[in-house]
Amino acid sequence: MGLKEKILVKSLWVFHISAGSCNNCDIEILDCLTPRFDIERFGMQLIGSIRHADVLLVTGAMNKKSAPILKDLYEQAPKPCFVVAVGTCPCSQHMFKDSYNTISSLDAIIPVDVYIPGCPPKPEAIIAGIAKLINKLTNDKR
């Protein structure tokens, strides 16, 4: 583990991108911040600018209009930047696979570190996913 990652895992700042989702994963991500789940106690914070982000939470089935912008956003993020696919749509396109406007799953566009399937995943699952990312970064085999 490099020095950068070692510092990062103490306080991951997350940026949320909705690339053509149905809003459910988005509100579940926001739900993680509100009193019942409150991920800010783990040092995670939802931030407003991509240039401060350590983790991108991507939701939704990529469509032809949002995919190029998503790629741009990933290029603007400071590296190392970790990508989490939240929901079944970015993982495997869900039921939008045959649609004329969706392109591919997320990993064909940008590299993905953690997949959180579910329609929508519960806030507990999202928190567990981020915790797995931290485990992955610290090479913890738990």
Binding site: S18, A19, G20, S21, C22, N23, N24, C25, D26, I27, G60, A61, N63, K65, S66, I69, H94, M95, F96, D98, S99, Y100, N101, T102, C119, P120
Partner: peptide, 30 residues
């Protein structure tokens, strides 16, 4: 930025399956 072509998808699904497709239009008023 959110267009997924649900109307067209619905035309390729069985009557019962469409219920689930249209549910995924929106998560808040689902």
């Amino acid at each position: 930025y959110n267009h997924r072509g649900i109307e067209k998808l619905a035309e390729n699904k069985h009557w019962d399956q469409v219920t689930f497709v249209v549910e995924r239009i929106c998560g808040i008023c689902s």
